[in-house]
């Protein structure tokens, strides 16, 4: 993976992987909608963030893509989690949980002085 500095891209990648794990093969639009819905519409996913992230994940071999037909008969490119992607998802999810846990301890009020 590598790009640790770019937190937003990093978290977006994790969200994409998780979405694909939950819903199976999905097109870019579907991924974007799902992420927005899950975030309670707190996040807005536009082209400019989504497609470079998808391309990067594909180049790294975590997802693969092929053209297919959507529910309402429209041509769309479907993304699918690869085996490497599954592993990466587990790993990143674990790391992310750890990070949030640590941060939560720091941010939790009063415990230190008690």
């Amino acid at each position: 993976m590598g790009d640790k500095k770019d937190v937003w891209q990093g978290t977006l990648a994790l969200m994409v992987l998780k979405t694909l794990q939950a819903l199976g093969p999905l097109h870019g639009y579907g991924i974007a909608r799902r992420i927005e819905q899950t975030s309670g519409d707190l996040l807005a996913v536009n082209y400019g963030t989504l497609y470079p992230a998808l391309l990067k994940l594909e180049q790294e071999g975590y997802i693969s893509s092929e053209w297919g037909t959507s529910d309402n008969n429209r041509k769309a490119k479907y993304y699918k989690l690869t085996r490497a992607g599954r592993k990466q998802l587990e790993k990143e999810a674990r790391e992310w949980e750890q990070t949030t846990e640590i941060l939560a301890r720091f941010l939790a009020p009063g415990k230190e002085s008690a």
Binding site: R33, Y51, S70, R74
Partner: peptide, 17 residues
């Protein structure tokens, strides 16, 4: 070309919604 049609289809789905 691939990217263009992908973005195009994304846009259309959004419009339909």
């Amino acid at each position: 070309a691939d990217l263009s049609s992908e973005l195009e289809s994304h846009l259309r789905m959004h419009i339909e919604e």
